[in-house]
């Protein structure tokens, strides 16, 4: 999995500020960025976002991988936009996208997922109005995060088993084993939760 966006330990001001403030700030910043209508302001927003990211002192090796993926996606969006509605609009969209994504990265790379989940728990508080539990919802998100490398591993294993048998990539040689492995994984995970006395609420 690409490490960009995953927490990197550190001691900068961004690491010390509480997660709630950072997420609130991100929300406000993204709303501001969406109001941008000129390429100049969009460029400025990217610059500011870049400075904020730099102040978190994330190792360049971590940031680089994510930037490449970001560049490809935004590049495609830029070309589509250019063709659809002209260069100025395309530049604004590019700048807005890049700025908000860089800021979102900065928040997630300086905030422990646990802290982020507590913010999510607060954000999900309205769920209690419909009888659902925000704690359980946040817990499910944490479980899902934990499962991503496991499912990626299941995909890799299924692919290895397929090539070991000399089978061509197909639905039955890849997709079916991955889904069945995932369901088994869910059984194991459910059992582990029960054995650890969860969910307690």
């Amino acid at each position: 999995m690409n490490p960009a966006g995953v927490f990197v330990p550190g001691t900068t001001w961004l690491h010390r500020v509480s997660a709630g403030v950072k997420v609130g700030g991100l929300f406000a910043a993204v709303l501001l960025v969406l109001l941008i209508r000129t390429p100049l302001l969009a460029g400025l927003a990217v610059l500011v976002a870049g400075v904020v990211l730099a102040s978190a002192r994330i190792p360049w090796s971590v940031v680089r991988g994510g930037l490449r993926g970001l560049a490809i996606v935004l590049g495609v969006l830029f070309l589509v936009q250019w063709w659809a509605s002209g260069l100025d609009d395309a530049a604004v969209t590019l700048g807005r996208g890049a700025a908000s994504i860089l800021l979102a990265w900065t928040v997630s790379m300086t905030t422990r997922v646990a802290a982020m989940l507590r913010v999510l728990e607060v954000g999900l508080r309205p769920l209690t109005w419909v009888g659902a539990s925000p704690e359980r919802a946040a817990l499910t998100v944490a479980l899902a995060i934990r499962c991503v490398p496991m499912v990626l591993d299941a995909v890799r294993q299924a692919n290895e088993a397929r090539s070991a048998r000399g089978a061509r990539p197909s639905v039955s040689s890849l997709a079916v084993p991955v889904v069945i492995r995932s369901l088994r994984m869910a059984d194991g995970l459910g059992e582990a939760l029960v054995a650890r006395g969860q969910p307690r609420d």
Binding site: R136, L139, T140, V141, L143, A144, I145, R146, C147, V148, M150, V151, S182, L183, M185, A186, D187, L189, G190, L193, P199
Partner: peptide, 9 residues
């Protein structure tokens, strides 16, 4: 919860 989490993943 486990099923929902695994499928999200």
């Amino acid at each position: 919860m486990a099923q929902v989490a695994v499928f999200a993943a």
